[in-house]
Design a protein around this nucleic acid. Structure first.
Lengths: 429, 429
RNA sequence: UGACACCGUCUGCU
DNA sequence: AGCAGACGGTGTCA
């Protein structure tokens, strides 16, 4: 069976509402993974690097262009112009220099930030498995480098994914397209200095698209990476697989919490150098630790594949209790807490609940008999139903959990970035 | 002194005290958000590495020892034993060995030499700025105690004197070293070791008696300080003075309130280092916050001079309402509450009422014409009649009020002491 | 329904 | 050491 299978587009903006119509399942027989040819919203599949770069309208076409193509680059859009921009961004082979000024070297002779390609070359030529990338700001580059440091230990997360990746890679290799990767750096061509999103697709691509190539740097050159376009991302394909859950670490930070000058940051960690990792400032007027923690979960759910079981790991008992326990009561009593006050942060909590509900509905067709029975023995497992089930796991903060530590770093970086760039938080439209 | 006019000690740093002569009824503006959630108990600040290793009782003192000191090591404890262990962990400055058997108490309820931690604890828990140390021989301990006398550590405190005392103490301290001190102590004299109650009368004697020499350790060696004989005290002489009222802060605590394992504590605060301050466990089987609060008032009334106007400051609206408002109704309707149930804690409430009544009777001879008219304009002022009148004042808990904060600390310390020592509460005979 | 208090827990910070 | 952000609960009364 091919690694990539059926694809069901999901309307990205309907996150908060239950789907208007439920896709009628074609009686999925347990054990038999069947592909679905359902097509919903208008989509543009932009292929920047592939057999024939351009814009396609079906996933099948896109796949044809991309499958087995070395360092293929592709992405889906809801807007045609965005898709075109993506394709035309710079040539089709991604071999130019652009205006990037800072280079982060994660893996090389001397990891760090450099300002010329020449220097980067010196770090990576002949280096086994180099990791590097170009950025517009030093901060971004530094963060990238720091992120690389975190990967020093053996991958504590995404184990199953890694395995899949390995398999897939092997398979691809067998197909014999001579991908040589890892061993030798890009030759003479000024290749290898990619803008965000131009780097070779990571293994995550198996989930459908690389959801992290976010920045269109047409404008807003100064601002730090925010969610923006990510919102518009299509969700990943609902694949008929039943794999082990993906562990996603979330954390929030709020510098000077409790004071007017507080800056919030959000961190989501999938794994070392995983491009789905998130580090961004907290949006909104109210900058508190709790909102940062909740937002991290929101972002995790946005980025995570919709068709896979996931485990969200947080150190915020508050957040976890909100969406696994307390919400039951709140929904009944009009969101009044035990102190007879209105529940705080209802917006974020509700958003999470909606996304969780959506996942269940989305995956219900693939559920097995009796798998939908909610509230079993474990009350906390309410959302862990079906092939898209979500489990929440608490870890003690600032302890030895490496995933949590990594997420914390990302969150703090996001908050500090907001501080540095003076993002004018609170004036969001 | 001029201007002080026989007023009982007030926390010198307290700024927001209503004028003594004009009893401004505090307008309770409820509804504001609650402040600190942190438990401020009586703390022991152990300095292991610092200018002067030892145990301190205020953060300020601790800071003095530690600020700017390279690699300072310090930590706070709620248990004195723990604190001592921390300090002595690896004797950084040549502190004594561990097998100490004699304990000298320079500053505490009853300075002298003791031979068990239990006794020492009785002397210093709830005591502001205690000085004590362990020795291998009784002679050393006696010398230590004697030195303390020379430095004025056991100087009587309370009432007007407290400010002077504080200053003096500060001076002594600046002079350095409470511990490994200096020159030659007075030789030979086996002075300084008195039994409880034999210590020189403190200045509080102005109120009649030293109400704090409480312990007879004839029996019950294991149990923590309880009220015992205090009950049996004769009431003080009714002196013909009409001074400003004494402000007494009361507070109760109940760790794990509502659960079977709850531990109650009682705190009464007259002023800094006032020897009438109380910190003790709550008696009885029923360990609830309300009983702790009421008991604190009982204890305050027991300890307070009977011939002076007093103000009892509590954050418990319940307690205050019980004895200023609701009791009127209850007396009429056989102590049935509005839910047609028997009023809880009647024993304590009745006791307070009795003591209040007694104060009025006691002081009636000294009342002026028409001063006995009860229930004037202010319903809450029912007991504020005559030269022994009692006014109740509510303060928001855990706010800025330092008196309330101090009482809270004493109460929590009392509760924690009970916890630590496993006092068999509830089996009192 | 309201009020005050007493707690328990986790996190975020300075 | 201190603060704030959040939730859950009991103790008690009107």
């Amino acid at each position: 069976m091919d690694g990539v299978n059926g694809f069901t587009a999901v309307n990205p903006t309907s996150t908060h509402q239950p789907p208007p119509t439920q896709p009628t399942p074609s009686t999925p027989t347990a054990g038999t993974k069947r592909k679905r040819e359902s097509k919903s919203a208008l989509k543009f599949y932009a292929v920047r690097v592939g057999k024939e770069p351009g814009i396609y309208h079906t996933w099948a076409e896109c796949l044809d262009q991309v499958k087995g193509f070395p360092k293929a680059m592709f992405k889906s859009f809801t807007s045609l112009t965005d898709a075109e921009n993506f394709v035309n961004n710079e040539g089709t082979t991604g071999t130019e220099s652009k205006g990037t000024k800072y280079y982060g070297v994660q893996s090389g002779r001397n990891p760090g930030v450099y300002t010329s390609w020449q220097e980067v070359l010196e770090q990576i030529t002949g280096w086994k498995g180099p990791k590097h990338r170009g950025f517009k700001t030093r901060t971004e580059a530094e963060q990238y480098v720091a992120e690389g440091k975190l990967s020093g230990y053996d991958a504590p997360v995404g184990t199953i994914e890694s395995m899949e990746h390995t398999q897939k890679k092997a398979k691809t290799k067998k197909k014999g397209n001579g991908i040589k990767d890892e061993s030798s750096p890009p030759p003479g061509m000024s290749h290898g200095e990619y803008d965000p999103g131009e780097a070779p697709l990571s293994e995550d691509a198996e989930d459908g698209f690389d959801t992290t190539i976010t920045l269109d740097h047409t404008t807003n050159g100064a601002r730090y990476k925010t969610r923006d376009e990510r919102e518009a991302y299509t969700y990943q394909a609902v694949r008929p697989v039943r794999d082990a859950p993906i562990r996603i670490y979330t954390d929030g930070s709020s510098l000077s919490n409790g004071r007017a000058s507080a800056w919030g940051g959000v961190g989501v960690y999938f794994g070392p150098s995983d491009r789905r990792n998130i580090s961004e400032p907290l949006e909104g007027v109210k900058q508190t630790n709790q909102r940062a923690e909740l937002t991290a979960i929101v972002r995790a759910l946005e980025v995570a594949p919709k068709d896979r079981k996931i485990v969200i790991v947080s150190d915020s008992k508050y957040s976890i209790d909100c969406v696994t326990d307390w919400f039951h009561n709140w929904q009944r009593n009009n969101w009044i807490n035990s102190s007879r006050k209105a529940v705080e942060n209802k917006d974020l909590i509700q958003k999470i609940l909606d996304m969780l509900e959506e996942r269940i509905i989305l995956n219900r067709p693939r559920m097995e008999e009796g798998e939908d029975i909610a509230i079993s023995e474990d009350k906390r497992a309410y959302w862990d139903r079906g092939p898209g089930g979500v489990r929440f796991e608490w870890v003690k903060g600032h302890d030895k959990d490496e995933g949590n530590t990594a997420a914390d770093s990302l969150a703090v970086a996001g908050a500090r970035a907001a501080q540095e760039f003076g993002v004018d938080i609170g004036v969001d439209g």
